[in-house]
């Protein structure tokens, strides 16, 4: 299971995808994923905001992550 990375998230991790298995504890929810990201890559904690998309929709903290979901890290957007 992989997490898609965009913008500054790609620079922080140094890749455009991140394997869920690479975390010490495999995150089950959006909240846990954010915690694991900040633990593994402290620079995530310095961003203005951090959102997670599940199946290309903004997800709530409590959203469960299931195998087969498309998960993406959404750092602060800056289109326009």
């Amino acid at each position: 299971m992989e997490v898609l990375l965009f913008g500054i998230a790609k620079d922080i991790v140094g890749a455009s995808v991140l394997a869920m298995e690479s975390f010490e504890k495999r995150p089950d929810t959006v909240k846990e994923l954010k915690q694991e990201l900040e633990r593994s890559f402290p620079d995530f904690g310095k961003l203005s905001s951090l959102a997670i998309a599940v199946n290309s929709e903004y997800a709530e903290e409590g959203t469960q992550l299931r195998s087969g979901d498309e998960i993406a890290i959404i750092p602060p957007v800056s289109g326009g």
């Binding site: 965009f6 993406a72 959404i74 750092p75 957007v77 800056s78 289109g79 326009g80």
Partner: peptide, 12 residues
């Protein structure tokens, strides 16, 4: 334009 800048996942 205001909502696009706030919500759409595009990075510059």
């Amino acid at each position: 334009i205001d909502t696009l800048k706030e919500k759409v996942p595009i990075w510059k």
